[in-house]
Design a protein around this nucleic acid. Structure first.
Length: 576
DNA sequence: AACTGCGTAAACAGTA
DNA sequence: GTACTGTTTACGCAGT
């Protein structure tokens, strides 16, 4: 019953019985990924071109003696492109994190357990870095031309350009020695012949690019040997492939959206239309060296997130062998992972963003029963549910809970009884359950203090995001450009991440400051309707939080408020 | 190593 | 008697 790490042999058996990827299918899978990488490559190239054009434009304007005001208009536009670039990067990073999250990227015992280690190698595509470099170096050059209104641009550009550096330093342990741009250079120089002679998507920089592997292979033959021995067609590899397919499909979706957005941006800016799709064909000939550089990468911004819309319609062309179905997804579901609230992804936003996914894929939601129950209750209009309604919410929202009812229902009841945060309220027609948010929040601090590396990342990314957004908003507001923050750019992941991180960080800070009454980051004050304590606690009198334990009136009496103050000074009206 | 949180299983009681 | 609801205990795993 107790599922050990990762996947039990039984589950592996299931995987194999249900769907085994044939070598042909694997081939197709690889090809799909290659194609995707190519697309991204082309897009990056396109961005690069646009950047150059924009800079040209900028220079021309300057030479033509245009007003500084117009310069300022271009700078935010550049930033918008940089945002796009960032999104592309984050998109890639999202992948591996999702892999990790689904438990298929568990590191072999021998490997150092760096939290985000699978993302370290080849994460920052050289082109992107080059682009960043160009962008960042171009700006100061412009500053020297003597624009009097360019201080905003400078700060913003600096802010943006510092992001990838930070990213690479944080995410890539190997990069910390030598600065952001020298990450790949030494390795590439050391192994040029191999990469020219043997282009393999799974091999680059002397490292196996299999998700979560990163085994160092001196040369290509040893890589092949490694590939055949470590990543043979076994249960694990099959499962990883399946997840990777999901990831690829997600990326394709996202890529399509981003392309569309980019096109709109180009149209809006009247930039000479250079269709990304019409990118020079030779791009297709890029070697695996280049391909591997566009391999998934991670940034602190990428909190683990399940695919946003995995069940969204997929392009028939990329559907390929439809080995990944919601039916097969449950093979990863039952794996007992202790993500539960681990990364402090706000449950409400996660569920909202991945609603379709959870509804259709039998993947265990990465939240504890307590969190889910709370969510169910808070989602209800009355902020109260009967047990049966809670059951229904579980089954309605999560395909995973449509099986093994006895087990999880028992768990739900167990949790309802066990946690003081769930308050049973006698009703006319029975009993309903409510949430005592104060009690619930009492449990949270321990969790957020949980993963230091993640928190560190969150903090750094937060530190980056905030000034970036602020600067962006400032400069754009100044130019009457519609708010173009990461959160509003139509990328649910990015936006969600940004807001989510802020939410969580606020929570963390609040908890760190022990008990400050809250500053409620933009959520409905659910707890304004503070649940009435009805849960008797005869066994634990000293725990009785005020003499209201048996009060059943919902009236907001002054007494109630008083007692609430006794109860806990940290009456966080809400924080997710 | 101890502690804690969580998930699972199960026993038991009360009630419709 | 049965099913449901609710409480409680026990155990194992994982993380700190």
């Amino acid at each position: 019953m107790m599922t050990p790490q990762v996947i039990t042999p039984q589950q592996m058996q299931q995987i194999l019985q249900q769907q085994v990827l044939s070598p042909q299918q694997l081939q197709v899978l690889l090809q799909q990924q290659q194609a995707l990488m190519l697309q991204q490559q082309q897009l990056q190239e396109f961005y690069k071109k646009q950047q150059e054009q924009l800079q040209l434009q900028l220079l021309q304007q300057q030479h033509a003696g245009k007003q500084p005001k117009e310069q300022q208009q271009v700078a935010p536009q550049q930033l918008a492109f940089q945002q796009q670039l960032l999104q592309m990067q984050q998109l890639q990073q999202q992948h591996l994190l999702s892999l990790q999250r689904q438990g298929l990227l568990s590191l072999p015992p021998g490997q150092p357990a760096l939290p985000l280690q699978p993302l370290s190698q080849g994460m920052i595509p050289a082109e992107l870095q080059q682009l960043w470099k160009e962008v960042t170096s171009a700006h100061p050059a412009e500053e020297t031309t003597g624009s009097s209104h360019s201080s905003v641009d400078l700060t913003t550009a600096t802010c943006v350009s510092s992001a990838p550096a930070k990213t690479s330093l944080i995410m890539n342990p190997h990069a910390s020695t030598n600065g952001q741009l020298s990450v790949h250079t030494p390795k590439r120089e050391s192994l040029p012949h191999e990469e020219h002679a043997h282009s393999h998507p799974l091999y680059g920089h002397g490292v196996c690019k299999w998700p979560g592997c990163e085994a160092v292979c001196e040369d290509f033959p040893s890589f092949l040997k490694h590939l055949n021995s470590e990543h043979a067609l076994d249960d694990r590899s099959t499962a990883q492939c399946r997840v990777q397919m999901q990831v690829v499909q997600q990326l394709e979706l996202q890529l399509a959206k981003d392309k569309e957005r980019l096109q709109a941006m180009m149209t809006h800016l009247h930039v000479k239309s250079t269709e990304p799709k019409a990118a020079p064909q030779p791009l297709n000939l890029v070697s695996s060296v280049t391909l591997s550089k566009s391999a998934p990468e991670a940034s602190p911004q990428s909190l683990p997130h399940t695919p946003t819309t995995p069940t969204a319609p997929l392009t028939p062309a990329t559907q390929g062998p439809s080995v990944i179905t919601t039916a097969s997804m449950h093979t990863v579901g039952p794996i007992r992972r202790r993500y539960s609230d681990k990364y402090n992804v706000p449950i409400s936003s996660d569920i909202a963003q991945n609603q379709e996914f959870y509804k259709n894929a039998e993947v265990r939601p990465p939240f504890t029963y307590a969190s889910l129950i709370r969510q169910a209750i808070l989602e209800s209009p009355e902020k109260q549910l009967t047990l049966n309604e809670i059951y229904n919410w579980f089954t309605r929202m999560f395909a995973y809970f449509r099986r093994n009812a006895a087990t999880w229902k028992n768990a739900v009841r167990h949790n309802l009884s066990l946690h003081k945060c769930f308050v049973r309220v006698e009703n006319v027609k029975g009993a309903v359950w409510t949430v005592d948010e104060v009690e619930f929040q009492k449990r949270r601090p321990q969790k957020i203090s949980g993963n230091p590396s993640l928190i560190k990342n969150m903090q750094s990314s937060h530190a980056y995001c905030t000034p970036l957004n602020a600067a962006l908003q400032a400069s754009m507001a100044e130019n009457s450009i519609p708010l173009y923050t990461t959160a509003s750019m139509g990328n649910p992941t990015l936006g969600g991440l940004a807001s989510g991180m802020r939410e969580e960080l606020n929570g963390a800070v609040e908890h760190a400051n022990s008990t400050e009454s809250d500053s409620s980051p933009g959520r409905s004050p659910v707890q304004a309707v503070h649940p009435v304590h009805v849960k008797e606690e005869p066994l634990d009198p000293e725990e009785a939080e005020g003499p209201l334990s048996l009060v059943t009136t919902a009236n907001h009496s002054p007494d109630f408020d008083q007692d609430r103050d006794y109860e806990d000074e940290a009456v966080n009206e809400d924080m997710e």
